[in-house]
Design a binder for these strands. Structure first.
Lengths: 260, 260
DNA sequence: GAGTGGTCTAGACCACGCG
DNA sequence: GCGTGGTCTAGACCACTCA
């Protein structure tokens, strides 16, 4: 049968398992190829990707091999399977878990049925990357960045004060109006307006004391303990695309984490 | 062939896919059976479980079905696969990732090569569960519990102040000496001495201000911001077996989390 | 009823660890 | 060289969705 042994790079004539220089299992190579298509935007967020059988014949491998590749993509939340319907490119919009990356929940009642957060954009301007921001985003110092400062409130209570830094090259034209008016998660807006899809993030969490300005914006006494959450969010290929520093009030909410 | 269709509960005579009252895929039933054996202590932490072929013939299913069951157990960290050697019951000891559940890392240098934490046991006594502790541990108010208070220091710097509550029934005879002298993670000691294996945990994280006593124990000024980490750890079947309240200094360390 | 993902099998071969 | 987990295939059937 035409199926390639895992080492074979030079497929005879069909769509080859190409450009896989180093050894890896076939399904990993297939996964890489699907990843390339995702990254290239061949299928948009929310759309279905080709069926397993389609991909199997496209890549000249068995369905089981494609399945294992997709299994891993699904485990990484890059793709969502729906039995009977197909496999879909994951998106921060329409994902029944809104706010996939926000782990701050009300103390009573895990679900957020209190409606979406109210956003106040305090600042949205183009500036130059500090050394620290440049390092986090993989830029050069004084490269262009967009900086946003905002407050999120729940039921009228200001709860989160955030500073966001984005690479200027990828977010040309981002405006305060866009940040304020878009319905749904900010990351969904980034997908729709800028084609930037956040796929993974790392957070560093600390306890800090509110300074005078922070305290005023969050309407707490100066010196109140706040949760400091520094997040770097990545697109495909572990390319950092956002640095975010959040200060969370945790008097009526907590950061919820699962360990296993 | 003898393989059972997924609905068939009444295996003819071999080791049956028994006691699987409601419908579920075969591999889920197999997973459940393996889980029962793990829970019953049929194989001890660190030991190898039977090979996939063994289990396949024991349960009268194909190797692939056993494989999928074990895949899920491995994904849940209940079991560790090692190619060429076998599949082993996960353990908190000898796990190259010491402190699997402790996410506090030094700001510079992710790895803990500073050696293990120095433990000071401040208190270790049997007492009665408060309403709150009882609720967290699924006990009745005033059931027996063991309470431990300790400080963990790194390189001489007191960093973590913890209160731990354990069900008295499962931890009879736990002593301050045991808590202090055991080499390795506390959870490894729980495995060895009490046969209790923590498998999963949930944490609620807040920023709080140190009160006078806490400040003294951690050698920080009163009112300093500290990270409050409340953890409930579970054994098999989501049975809660530990409540732990930690206060972390985050002046030179941070709580590291990965989102995806 | 056609199409999709989900389960299950049986058999082949590969990579690894160890005696 | 044997036994283990890891990969890959081919084909069958099941469960779900939707026209």
């Amino acid at each position: 049968m035409p199926a390639l042994p895992p080492f074979d790079d030079a497929a005879p004539d069909a769509v080859p398992v190409q450009a896989a220089p180093s050894f890896s299992p076939l399904y990993q190579q297939i996964k890489g190829l699907i990843l390339q298509s995702l990254q290239a935007g061949e299928w948009k967020p929310g759309e279905a990707i080709p069926s397993e059988m389609d991909l199997a014949s496209r890549f000249r491998v068995s369905q089981g091999t494609v399945r294992k590749a997709i299994d891993e993509l699904a485990a990484e939340n890059l793709v969502v399977r729906r039995q009977g319907k197909g496999t879909f490119v994951a998106t921060h919009a329409e994902q029944h878990v809104q706010y996939r990356f926000l782990k701050l929940v009300p103390d009573s009642g895990d679900r957020d049925e209190e409606g979406p957060a109210e956003r106040s954009i305090l600042e949205c301007r183009r500036t130059r990357a500090s050394a620290e921001v440049a390092r986090a985003l993989g830029l050069r110092t004084s490269d262009a960045v967009v900086q946003v400062r905002r407050v999120l409130a729940f039921a009228g209570v200001p709860t989160i004060l955030e500073d966001i830094w984005l690479p200027g090259s990828a977010f040309k034209g981002l405006s305060a109006e866009q940040m304020a008016d878009f319905q749904g998660p900010t990351y969904a807006m980034f997908e729709l307006e800028f084609g930037v899809r956040m796929v993974r993030a790392e957070e560093k969490i600390r306890a800090v004391a509110a300074d005078a300005q922070q305290a005023q914006l969050l309407r707490v006494p100066t010196g109140s303990p706040l949760l400091s959450v520094e997040r770097i969010a990545f697109t495909y290929n572990d390319v950092p695309m956002e640095l975010r520093r959040g200060l969370y009030r945790t008097d009526n909410r907590h950061y919820r984490n699962e360990l296993s």
